[in-house]
Design a protein around this nucleic acid. Structure first.
Lengths: 163, 163
DNA sequence: TTTGTGAGTTTAGTTCTTCAACTCAGGCCG
DNA sequence: CGGCCTGAGTTGAAGAACTAAACTCACAAA
């Protein structure tokens, strides 16, 4: 029996992974979300090889996830730092989802090492409660279980035949 | 100035990525969420090399993301299929987050190829509306922006000195 | 007995990672 | 000026991971 399925290769997950799916990429983004900006900061926090870090940063810049900004310490020459773009900051939910999954299934016996809290950097009034990622549909049904959702073809779907 | 930071290596994101961060792993999980069960299905849907698929499936089984289940087609010998465990199905939010990010920033000009909808497989009564991933804190504040959250040390945190 | 099929395994070649050593540009000290 | 220091990379060699294609294995059907 022949069926038509959504082409699994023409998919935003695959495209997203081609940008941030390489080893270290998401960890670099995570450190950037946590305030790292300079080559040496990423290097010492992550222990990544320098040449790989250089190529990863370049890839992320090219992809529009980060951008290079010049900076100059007083009494030092100009150097470059790396900051997330809006596109890069938008990876936060992905990282929170991964964190939550890791906490749930691969936790340190001591408990999670990181808790993500509701606390804007520049606003002391926030509630400080732990943050979770939830699935919510456009009709407002929230906290959907993984089983309660399914994939359907969208406007850009390509199809492939399969047996 | 010396500061103490959360050890970036002792982190659930890093641990999660050590399980599902290899090339293909998340795509295999995605196909499994979409119903793929057999070696040949994963192979033909993804176009992954057979030996890699074999090692990835083994890794995922070892990690507890999938499990091997025997099956037997009528008039055929027993073979094995691969199904997600609860731990594997729990990766759905991560994949939805990646999908959303890819749709937003790397979309096909035609629009998204896949839309995730609120529709349990075995329940025709559901609303069918598109599903999004949202950040929500324990106090009920929902739809938090990426900037409105920050990382804080949890019970299992290790610390490292840094300059 | 030959042919076919799904599920892998083997092998050879290419690409990616790692680690260590090296370069480069400017600032600082004597 | 000349030597030394620092941050930010670059280069190169060795090892690990990935790809593609051919091969095996156990059974079933003709």
């Amino acid at each position: 029996m022949e069926t038509r399925r959504i082409d699994p290769v023409n998919c935003s997950v695959a495209r997203a992974l081609s940008v941030v799916g390489e080893r270290w990429s998401l960890l670099i983004v995570r450190e950037a979300l946590d305030g790292a900006r300079r080559f040496g900061e990423f290097h010492s926090r992550l222990g990544i090889a320098r040449n790989l870090l250089a190529t990863r940063l370049e890839t992320l810049v090219t992809a529009g996830v980060m951008h290079r900004v010049p900076y100059q310490e007083p009494g030092d020459r100009q150097r470059f730092a790396y900051e997330l773009t809006e596109q890069g900051r938008a990876l936060r939910p992905t990282l929170v989802a991964l964190l939550e999954w890791g906490d749930t299934y691969l936790a340190d016996p001591q408990g999670p090492s990181v808790i993500v809290r509701h606390r804007p950097v520049d606003d002391a009034s926030s509630c400080d409660e732990p943050v979770k990622v939830v699935l919510e549909c456009a009709a407002g049904h929230s906290h959907l279980a993984p089983e309660d959702v399914c994939r359907t073809p969208g406007p850009g779907a390509r199809f492939v035949e399969s047996s």
